[in-house]
Amino acid sequence: MATDKVDPIHQFHLNDLIPVNIGGLDLSFTNSSLFMVIVAVVTAGFLYLTTANRGLVPTRLQSISEMSYEFVASMLRDGAGSQGMRFFPFVFSLFMFILVANLVGMVPYFFTVTSHIIVTFAFSMLVIGLVVVYGFWKHGFHFLNLFVPSGVPGALMPLVVMIEVISFLSRPISLSVRLFANMLAGHITLKVFAGFVFSLGSMGAIGIGGAILPLAMTVALTGLEFLVAFLQAYVFAVLTCMYLNDALHPGH
């Protein structure tokens, strides 16, 4: 029982809530799926309700919605130019989903969707897939100019192009690993320090005195985790904008 309480990995277990098995594929509705639905409902519901009876002078909640719009719009304009605004719905949905998923994961006993690499990898493959498809659709084979830097001697060109291609292909991996590792490590750290409080607290009076230190650490880490939750959603969205910029203007 005690190991279950202080096991830092326990929070990431997937449990089947509604087992679904179609053609040998395990399509069960898990706790991860449940929290994805919750995140989507919370995001859409918040944005809908706060802008439902919109006024010229915004209420507090309405101004939160407007600020998130402004924030993503300016990020996209800076990162990908005004042409990038055609991707606004995509980037905004992605940013809001990741942000709300990270924040929902901060509630005790809640599941953090973005702490599973397959989820973040799906996001980043979506981004890179969009970049590649749109780049080829818009520019045809000129999109491949992205991999050919100017001013490189001809003899080195094949090597440099190979390295550029590998560097491009490594983007979805680094993008997904960064978000996943931050969320995973943050939640594990939080749980470990909270586990110290529990373990020390069950050791009598001296233990309770000693438990104050990890408790203070846990409080501080919680604040830090909220920062990380926002920062990682922001970093993901900024990098998405930069990659979309590549699709829009692939060098010359």
Partner: peptide, 25 residues
């Protein structure tokens, strides 16, 4: 390995991207 080093150098800003018009970061 080369691409990894290039990625790191780029993300620290030690090497600016050689392709004009890409990667505004």
């Amino acid at each position: 390995f080369c691409a990894g080093v290039l990625n790191v150098l780029r993300s620290t800003g030690a090497v600016s991207t050689p392709v004009p018009g890409s990667r505004s970061g």
